[in-house]
Amino acid sequence: MTDTDNTDNMDHTGTELVHLERDDGIARLTLDDPDKRNALSVEVANGIIAAVDHLEGTDTRCLVVEGAGEAFSAGGDVEAMIERVAEEQSLDDSVRHVIRNTGRCVQRVYESEFPTVAKVDGAAFGAGANLAIACDLQVFHEDAEIGFGFRRVGLAVDSGTSFLLPRLVGTNVAKELVYTGELLDAERAVEVGIGNHVYDADAFETEAEALIEEIASGPSVALRTSKRLLDAADASLRQAIAREAGAQAAVFESDDHAEGVSAFMERRDPEFEGE
């Protein structure tokens, strides 16, 4: 961790793949593993958690989450899935990964004490989509896409989908998005309730930054308190992640999951057998 002399300006790297900078109360957390489309590997997940932990207790007024390169986050680490299938990793280890890594980093962002904004200028899939909707607000570049296509790799939802998505779009729409794995463009995402704004390519940076600065210029104590009150309703995200991980244990062993991972890597449509 590296701090400058001015406490309002920080430069922190939780890992080599996650960067955190803070200037005048605005913190920017950047996922920086573009070769893997910012997938939520153990290293990236731990970097996110470390970065948010570092900000707690500071005078941070807004946290911006974004991805380097062409993707916001492609979600789960498919290479790790392949290794797990090939090495016949135990169910306990697989479930621990869901809770401790992807689930925990999504939860950490959701439970942060300050307002958060996901700045989505590329693809956000699966657990990566959950990271985006774990933020309080989402702003989309016109070319961004978001989807909860866990079915594509033969898995049930995890990393907080069952808690976060219905809160935004309602149960019926959430089920359709999960059942079909529909990939939503930015306009469609905002139309169904995922996100706040879509900005044209030429205006994305200017408009997104104007919104972020407006939030950061507000009464931070009041906004943090309002956030706690607005998030207090319904069941907890922690309970949802634990429930999902337990259910996912059975799905990890299915032939359909193995087929989904193979098809994903071979860039073909999966042929699920329902087993």
Score class of each variant (00 low, 15 high):
177 L>G: 04
178 V>L: 01
164 L>I: 15
79 E>M: 13
87 E>N: 15
132 A>N: 02
241 I>A: 04
48 I>E: 04
174 A>H: 05
111 E>C: 07
249 A>I: 08
199 Y>Q: 05
218 G>P: 03
8 D>Q: 09
78 V>E: 13
207 E>H: 11
151 R>T: 05
11 D>R: 02
114 F>H: 06
169 V>C: 00
48 I>H: 00
138 Q>P: 00
151 R>A: 09
185 D>S: 02
184 L>M: 06
208 A>C: 12
10 M>A: 14
29 L>F: 01
146 I>A: 10
200 D>C: 09
14 G>T: 05
103 G>Y: 03
188 R>N: 00
3 D>F: 04
52 V>W: 00
219 P>S: 13
64 V>L: 14
86 A>Y: 12
180 T>L: 04
233 A>M: 14
260 G>A: 05
40 L>M: 07
135 C>F: 07
21 E>Q: 11
122 G>C: 07
108 R>W: 06
219 P>E: 15
199 Y>S: 08
72 F>V: 04
4 T>L: 15
146 I>V: 10
50 A>S: 06
33 D>K: 01
219 P>V: 06
177 L>C: 12
241 I>Q: 09
145 E>M: 02
257 H>F: 15
31 L>C: 00
6 N>W: 15
63 L>I: 15
47 G>L: 02
217 S>V: 01
218 G>W: 01
9 N>T: 15
98 V>F: 11
197 H>C: 02
20 L>T: 06
146 I>E: 13
159 S>M: 02
130 N>V: 02
255 D>A: 13
7 T>M: 12
3 D>S: 04
226 S>Y: 12
